Simulated scan of single mutants.
Amino acid sequence: MHYKMDKMIEEKTLSLESAILLLKSVGYCKALKNVRNLFFDSSSLSGRFQKMIIDEKKKKEVKNDKLLIDLCECYLLHKEWFSSELLSICVPCLLKAALMKEENEDAKKEAEMALLSLNYIRNKYKVPEELYLDEIKEIIQHHQKRHNLTHLSYQSAWQFMINRFHKGESLEEMIVNELHFMKEAAKELEELEKCVDWKRYKEENGRIEVHIIWRWLYNIDHCFLLCKLWNEETTKLIRSIVELYREAKDYYRDICNGCAYLLRKAEEKRVVNVEILLKKGAIDCILEGMVQSSLDNLITRNCLHFFLSISKRLKEKTTDNAEEAKRKASKRKISEKMEDEGYKDIIVSFLGIFSFLYKNDNNLSLDISDYFVNV
Rank of each mutant, 00 (worst) to 15 (best):
C285A: 12
L357V: 06
S15E: 09
E138W: 12
A260L: 04
G47H: 12
Y218Q: 07
F307P: 06
P128G: 02
K96Y: 11
G352I: 03
R239L: 06
L364D: 03
Y261H: 12
K280F: 09
R301Y: 07
Y201L: 07
Y358P: 10
E172C: 10
L71Q: 04
I299C: 13
A111H: 14
V35S: 02
L21M: 05
D197F: 09
E129D: 14
A248G: 13
S153P: 00
E193C: 09
C259W: 12
K344C: 13
D70M: 05
V348P: 00
V271S: 15
I368W: 04
D345I: 08
S335Y: 07
E204T: 07
I212A: 08
A322Y: 12
F224E: 01
G27I: 04
H2E: 01
L237E: 06
N177F: 08
C303I: 14
L115E: 02
K183E: 05
K109Y: 05
T150Q: 08
T235G: 05
K337W: 02
V242Y: 03
I54R: 03
L357P: 11
D197N: 03
E341I: 08
L366G: 14
N148A: 11
N205H: 10
K279W: 10
R264I: 14
L87K: 02
K265V: 13
I54T: 07
L217M: 12
L314R: 02
I276T: 15
C285W: 04
K333C: 02
S311F: 15
A329F: 14
C259I: 07
N257M: 11
E243D: 13
F49P: 04
V291M: 12
C74E: 01
L38Y: 08
E233W: 04
K145W: 04
S170W: 13
V176G: 08
Q155E: 12
E172I: 07
M8I: 09
S170M: 15
F354D: 11
V127C: 03
K183S: 07
M182A: 15
V210P: 00
S18G: 08
I334S: 01
E243Y: 14
N37C: 08
V291S: 03
S83G: 07
Y3A: 11
R270N: 05
S84Y: 00
E288V: 05
K265W: 09
I212C: 03
F306K: 10
E339S: 09
G27F: 03
S25H: 06
M338H: 11
K326I: 07
K265D: 11
W230S: 07
Y252T: 13
K199D: 11
H180I: 01
D65E: 06
K58T: 11
K33H: 12
L95Y: 00
I347V: 15
Q50G: 10
W230K: 10
E247F: 02
L366T: 11
I139R: 02
C74H: 00
Y201M: 15
